[in-house]
Structures are given as structure tokens and as C-alpha cells.
């Protein structure tokens, strides 16, 4: 295989990173390949930490050969490189043996994830592998310029490496993996065209609800809340679609689930995210414990200034994308369901 072939193919395929940031894969590969350095690293991100997202686990379970093949292609494309597969703890336990068998004597090391959700963010992974507290780094420099131990580093998600191997074999058909769950009949992971709309996906998988519902699209913590009439769009983020029964869902409990996750999952490095999420959680918890139940509307009106202020600094001043995106579900839920 010639080095440049795969990058040309990636370019043609228009493959976008499947970790949530949608960065063109070919560009990343090219940057790392062309970077001047005596050593380079490749990291396969299998940290999948957001609730209701489990497609990377599905791929590791069903197509580990393709994933390793994808990494192998990267190793061959990028000179003097070695690789890490960064796995969340349960994936590590579950797939360690299988993966090691496939790795054989390739320069690929399995790394068990430390810390919380943030440790899925690219530069936090680098910190974790370097043995530090997983926290995002200041960017620039970006990992392709200076990553693991300051060497140029290619970080791609499990799903991306899977598709690299498909593209290499000319078997890529512009699909992606969707985790569908919540109040659905046919929960699961589906590989479908990436330009499908949410409603198409739900119909095709026979999951279109026959009750009044709403959707959280992207991921189960920072995905946006969508109403049935908004499902003409594609899924962003990590490709999860979660269905909620509108009558049976307590919005406060749902928001609490998010804040619980975010409290645990953020790194607490920066003021708006650490303190902002803490205060958001505080308000929501107080509401849940309040004996006089409020409607979402009343709740919002009662805390309007504080909520808006917290959303503002989270979105505008957070250090990394987690804090910036954390407002999306709350804001959309309050706006749409009140």
C-alpha cells in the first residue's frame, strides 16, 4: 500500500471524525504525516463516556478486526509511529484479550481510561496517557502539531478507524453508527446512511413512537432536545437518539440526570464549568426536593436570571467544549417543553 493512497481515499470519501467534532479525517492524517518530528503517536479513542451512547462498544464487540486494521493503516502511513488504544474501563476488561490477540506484535498499547467523562476529550486523553490528571489542554497547539509527550499525535475515534479500514478496502458507503434507545421497541446500534434524518432512522428501525414524545439527539447528556416536528435534521454529536415519552418523563428528573453526569464528568478545572454546573445542579435538586411541584415554566420564571447567567458563562467562557455544550440540553428542554 502506498502511503498517499489512503489519504487521497480519505479525502475523496469526505470522512468526518466520529468522535463528535466532525473534523475532516484526511486533514488530520495529513497534518500528522507531514509534521516534522522524530517520533509520532496514534491514539484510538474508545473512551465513549456519554450516557446512552454505546456504538463504539458495539464496534469493538463486532468488528475489532476492522478497528485494528484502521490503526495498522495509520501506523503504515505515519512514519516512526506507535499507537495507543484508550479504552473505557469496562471495554478494556471486556475486549482486552481479543484486541491483544489481533494486535500481535504491532506497536499498539492498550490503555485503561482513568477519570471521568472529560477523559474522552482529545487532549485530556493525552494528559491521562502521560499519567496526569485528565484535563483539556490549551489549544493551540493541536495534537497533530504537539500531542503525546509533545510529539505530533493523530487521535481518532474507534468508529473512525473502523471506517478507515472500510475506505481502504473501497467498501465505505457513507454510513455511520447510531445508538437508539430510551422509550423504543427496538433498542440497539444501527449502521445507516449518514445523511438520514432522525425521523427516517426512527422509521427505518421501526422505532417511531405511537405516543407523544420528544427526542434527545447526539448524546444522552449534552444532546439537544427535539420535538417530533424537528426530526427532519440529522443527528450530531456521537450519533445517539434517545426517545422520551412526554407524558411519563419528569423533566426535572431528566435534568438531574444530566447534572449528575456533568458534575462527575467534567474536570472542574475552569470556573464557569466547575461552579456553573454545581449551581445548576443545586437549583435543580432544590426544585426536586420542593414539596410544591412547579411546572417547568414556573421553574424557569423563578430562576430566570440565574439560569440565563449560568448558561451565558458556560457557553461563552468555558475552557473546553464540554462546558460550552453543556447548556444545550437544558436550554432546549426548558424552551420546548414548558
Amino acid at each position: 500500500m502506498k502511503n498517499n493512497d489512503i489519504i487521497t481515499k480519505l479525502k475523496k470519501s469526505n470522512l468526518l471524525g466520529k468522535g463528535g467534532a466532525n473534523f475532516p479525517t484526511s486533514l488530520k492524517w495529513e497534518m500528522v504525516k507531514n509534521a516534522e518530528a522524530e517520533k509520532k503517536y496514534i491514539v484510538c479513542n474508545g473512551s465513549e463516556g456519554e450516557p446512552n451512547v454505546f456504538k463504539d462498544g458495539f464496534i469493538l464487540e463486532n468488528y475489532p478486526e476492522e478497528v485494528i486494521e484502521g490503526i495498522k493503516i495509520a501506523l503504515a502511513t505515519i512514519n516512526n509511529s506507535s499507537a495507543y488504544i484508550y479504552l473505557r474501563k469496562d471495554y478494556y476488561e471486556k475486549y482486552k484479550n481479543k484486541l491483544e490477540e489481533l494486535i500481535g506484535n504491532l506497536p499498539i498499547t492498550l490503555f485503561k481510561k482513568t477519570g471521568h467523562y472529560i477523559a474522552g476529550e482529545e487532549t485530556s486523553i493525552l494528559e491521562a496517557i502521560e499519567g496526569k490528571r485528565p484535563e483539556p489542554r490549551i489549544k493551540p497547539p493541536f495534537p497533530p502539531q504537539s500531542g503525546l509527550w509533545n510529539y505530533p499525535t493523530l487521535i481518532n475515534n474507534v468508529e473512525t478507524f473502523y471506517y478507515v479500514s472500510k475506505i481502504n478496502k473501497d467498501e465505505y458507503q457513507n454510513t455511520r453508527f447510531y445508538s437508539i434507545n430510551g422509550a423504543v421497541k427496538n433498542e440497539g446500534v444501527y449502521e445507516l446512511p449518514e445523511n438520514y434524518s432522525i425521523s427516517q432512522i426512527l422509521k427505518e428501525t421501526n422505532n417511531w413512537p405511537d405516543f407523544s414524545f420528544f427526542v434527545q439527539a447526539g448524546g444522552g447528556a449534552i444532546g439537544e432536545i427535539l420535538l417530533p416536528n424537528e426530526l427532519k435534521q440529522q443527528v450530531g454529536g456521537s450519533g445517539a437518539i434517545i426517545i422520551f415519552n412526554r407524558q411519563k418523563t419528569n423533566p426535572f428528573a431528566l435534568m438531574k440526570k444530566w447534572t449528575d453526569f456533568l458534575l462527575q464528568g467534567n474536570c472542574d478545572k475552569c470556573v464557569p464549568c466547575r461552579e456553573g454546573i454545581f449551581r445548576l445542579a443545586e437549583i435543580i435538586k432544590r426544585e426536586i426536593n420542593n414539596p410544591n411541584k412547579h411546572s417547568l415554566d414556573k421553574f424557569f420564571k423563578a430562576h430566570k436570571q440565574t439560569l440565563q447567567d449560568l448558561f451565558f458563562v458556560l457557553e461563552q467562557t468555558s475552557f473546553c467544549a464540554l462546558g460550552k455544550c453543556a447548556v444545550v440540553p437544558f436550554r432546549s428542554l426548558i424552551k420546548k417543553l414548558k
Binding site: 464557569p272 461552579e275 451565558f312 458563562v313 467562557t317
Partner: peptide, 17 residues
């Protein structure tokens, strides 16, 4: 205005510690 607002709120969050 925007900068002022962001600093004010972040300061309030800092003061809360």
C-alpha cells in the same frame, strides 16, 4: 457589555468559594 457580563458572573461564582 458582553465582557462585563461574563466577568461579573464568573466573579460571582468565584466569590461563592
Amino acid at each position: 457589555k458582553k465582557i462585563h457580563k461574563a466577568r461579573k458572573i464568573n466573579l460571582e461564582l468565584i466569590f461563592a468559594q
